[in-house]
């Protein structure tokens, strides 16, 4: 019955062949065949066409610049503020703390179209928040700043949820020792606490970045979608598809897919690093 007898160590539990077989079959059909198909379709293109449609086009380049730039900025904002939120949730007590802890996961559960229209209305010129920025002549909705706002929301839980357990595991003796040896609070933080949390912060940052890169639903409402200015790469895929320019859509998708896969590898590497860091 065991389809992979030599690959696994002996175990008395039954069902390995059945569950592993089903897992691989399902993932093959739902995930791997479609992805292989996309790469195959990209392979049908000549290198010149791929270069022209996927990279060297002004509109495509502008979309990459916005997608990567805004995702990076959003992930950086989450790196800083997510760290503060995690710190506050682990170290301090205040009324409503459990509620705040629960609400952090909202971006996981709220459909992106819903957060999209909510943010757009909120940060528009007449919106509750947007009108205060309007006083200073800063427009958020329908500009690149709006894209950053939407991508920040999408990636918000990642840094908090990776830093939180790392901060909980941090041994207080180390901090006390640093303080006893005469370090100021600031020195203890920058030389002792922050370095040991850095792998967790970077993992959260990378996850937040990867998630933001592919985001579509929340951004298209707030971006304004001006070609070459506020047009993100995923939107350009949809536009190419609607123009029946399949190769154009495939080329952009492959560039995004490869970036996402490299990020996923980086995240795995970071997690391996942080495990070694602990051990």
């Amino acid at each position: 019955m065991n389809s992979l007898p030599r690959l696994r160590q002996h175990s008395v539990l039954p069902g390995f062949g059945l569950t592993m077989g089903f897992t691989l079959l399902y993932m093959g059909f739902v995930l791997l065949i479609p992805l292989a198909g996309l790469l195959f379709a990209a392979g049908q293109m000549s290198l010149g066409e791929f270069w022209e449609k996927g990279i060297a086009d002004r509109r495509v380049l502008a979309a990459y610049r916005l997608s990567f730039g805004a995702s990076l900025l959003g992930a950086a904002i989450n790196g800083v503020f997510g760290f503060i939120v995690a710190w506050v949730l682990v170290r301090y007590t205040f009324p409503g703390k459990r509620l705040v802890d629960a609400i952090v996961d909202l971006p996981f559960a709220l459909p992106t179209a819903v957060s999209g229209i909510a943010l757009t209305t909120l940060y528009a010129r007449t919106g509750w928040v947007g009108r205060w920025f309007e006083v200073f002549g800063v427009q958020i909705s329908y500009t690149w700043i709006g894209v950053v706002v939407a991508l920040t929301l999408i990636g918000l839980p990642f840094v908090v949820r990776t830093v939180q357990p790392a901060l909980e595991d941090l041994e207080s003796e180390v901090e006390e020792a640093a303080a006893a040896l005469g370090a100021t609070r600031f020195q203890t933080f920058t030389k002792v606490i922050f370095p040991s949390l850095l792998p967790a912060v970077l993992t959260g940052f990378a996850l937040s970045f990867a998630r933001a890169l592919g985001e579509y639903g929340s951004v298209i409402f707030i971006a304004g979608n001006m070609p070459g200015k506020t047009e993100i790469a995923p939107l350009l895929v949809v536009i190419r598809l609607e123009q029946y320019d399949y190769n154009g859509a495939i080329a952009i998708s492959v560039v995004m897919l490869v970036s996402a896969f490299l990020l996923l590898l980086t995240i795995n590497g970071l997690q391996w690093w942080s495990r070694r860091h602990e051990g």
Partner: peptide
């Protein structure tokens, strides 16, 4: 661990790319 990484892949793939693959198929 490679299998776990593969299971996570839909998180990192843009939903738009998923739609594109469906149209291609």
């Amino acid at each position: 661990s490679f299998l776990i990484t593969i299971i996570d892949m839909p998180f990192a793939i843009s939903p738009v790319v998923v739609g594109l693959i469906f149209v291609l198929m």
